[in-house]
Computed example of a mutant assay.
Amino acid sequence: MAVEREVRLARAILDFENTDLAVSILRSADADSLLRTVMEIDERRNDLAARAGEFCDSVRLPVDYRSLQFLFDHKSDLEAASLDPDALLDRAQLKRSEDALRRQGYTELVDWACNDLENFDPTRLAKVMRAIIAKNMVDKAFTIHGSALQDYDGQDFDRIREEIIERDRELIRMSRKVIRQGLLRDARPPQGNGIGHKSTYTEMSLIINEMNKRRNRLGIRELTQRAGQALLELKPCWMMSPLAVAQYLHEGMEFDLVVIDEASQMTPENAIGALSRAGQAVVVGDTKQLPPTSFFRKMLDDEDIDEDLREDSESILDMANVAFMPIRQLRWHYRSRHSALGDVGLLMQGSYHTGFTT
């Protein structure tokens, strides 16, 4: 027993960082009471280690983070997590983002954001990142093309930009002509009837006859009825409103694809006419926009209608989101020269990239 006591005391002395202080305590205190205290501390430490091990097993903590010292250092984090468990997901996402930035070489930026909390403004992080990326791109461009770029001034760059804009516009005009010529080259419109009374002419015979007229030409409705297949061969893409579809498209006129744009503003009954004329459909819209409303129509029908009856109608976009899967999210937009519009898209549950035409 005496030997065991001496061994325990020796271990206690070795655990002290200040050995002289440990020896002084041993000389001034009762060895037996000191040993009991050391044994109690060991038992509590062993019990705490066992409970910590059970905790680490329950949360599947990696081996590198299972030490008592690690848990003690992160005591405040664990207490905060116990009060708000849902925040753990945010912290995990933050940790993954931090690791990803470090792997991409942004260690200094991460350290600044994490350590300089007093001077760090989270709202500036996105701007700082964009500035760093832009600077890196400029530095790389000058590294590769620096010798050539030094010979240009601001006026040269303005002139080059204007030339690029004009070439881009010319390319758009030429693309239209190429598409038009390709459609006409590949078109095989039916000749139709071109014999007898002109009121019996159909298809291309009717179209050629109408082209030679200077007045008294047929209306669109009759023309599509008598020469619909020839028109589809010559002009395969039609842009129409729901009312125009009902007025001008006759039985037998079918398309490969129907695209309904601004679908959140269109009711199903207005869309059914176009949908029935194609085997495929693309329904495009924004669920964040206001749905079709019958407010004004009901006001015309009954000015005294109860306000509770003014209900919004279901749109064809709502029905498509339920009936068709998967839903595709647009990732590019061409409505603005500035990328800020893309930021608005992100707030509206989207992921957009900015592109623009001149």
Results as ranks from 00 to 15, higher is better:
G252K: 02
L330Q: 05
R161Q: 14
H338P: 03
R173N: 10
D186H: 10
T267G: 00
D90K: 14
R297C: 03
A49I: 08
P85H: 01
L48I: 07
G228W: 04
N119K: 08
T267D: 06
I272C: 03
L78S: 01
E40M: 07
S28K: 10
M39L: 09
F72E: 13
Q191W: 11
R96M: 12
V284T: 02
M137K: 15
A281V: 07
I208W: 10
V258E: 03
E163V: 12
L9R: 01
D64A: 14
S264M: 01
L89N: 12
R173V: 13
K127S: 12
F16T: 15
R27K: 11
S241V: 08
R226I: 05
N212Y: 08
N119V: 04
P242Y: 03
S294I: 11
L149F: 03
A187D: 07
I316V: 15
Y201H: 01
A340V: 13
Y248H: 05
S33I: 12
R180I: 13
V282H: 02
L101Y: 00
T358E: 10
V7Q: 15
N270W: 05
D286C: 07
I164S: 04
L94T: 11
R91F: 10
P190C: 04
G350H: 08
R91V: 13
H197Y: 09
H250Y: 03
R188K: 14
D90H: 11
P122M: 01
T107E: 13
Q225T: 11
F296T: 11
S82N: 08
S28N: 12
A340E: 15
T224E: 02
M240V: 13
N216F: 07
L223T: 09
L218G: 03
A92L: 13
R60D: 07
V23H: 11
A141G: 12
G273L: 13
E251F: 07
D64C: 14
G192P: 01
D111V: 14
G154D: 07
A134Y: 01
F157S: 06
A113I: 12
E170W: 11
H197R: 10
N321K: 13
G350R: 07
L171R: 15
M253H: 02
D64T: 10
R130W: 04
V110Y: 05
A113R: 02
E254S: 03
R214D: 14
P190V: 05
S82G: 15
L231D: 00
F70A: 04
S67I: 02
Y248I: 06
R130Q: 09
P85E: 02
I220S: 12
L48C: 10
G219Q: 03
I260P: 01
P189L: 06
E307C: 09
I41H: 09
E4V: 08
L223R: 05
K95N: 12
L9H: 00
M174Y: 15
A49L: 07
K127G: 13
A12Y: 04
K177A: 13
K288D: 08
L101H: 00
H145M: 05
Q150Y: 13
R45F: 01
R217W: 06
A244W: 08
G182W: 08
Q93L: 09
D57A: 01
L218C: 04
L206G: 04
A187L: 03
E163I: 14
F142H: 12
M266D: 02
L346M: 13
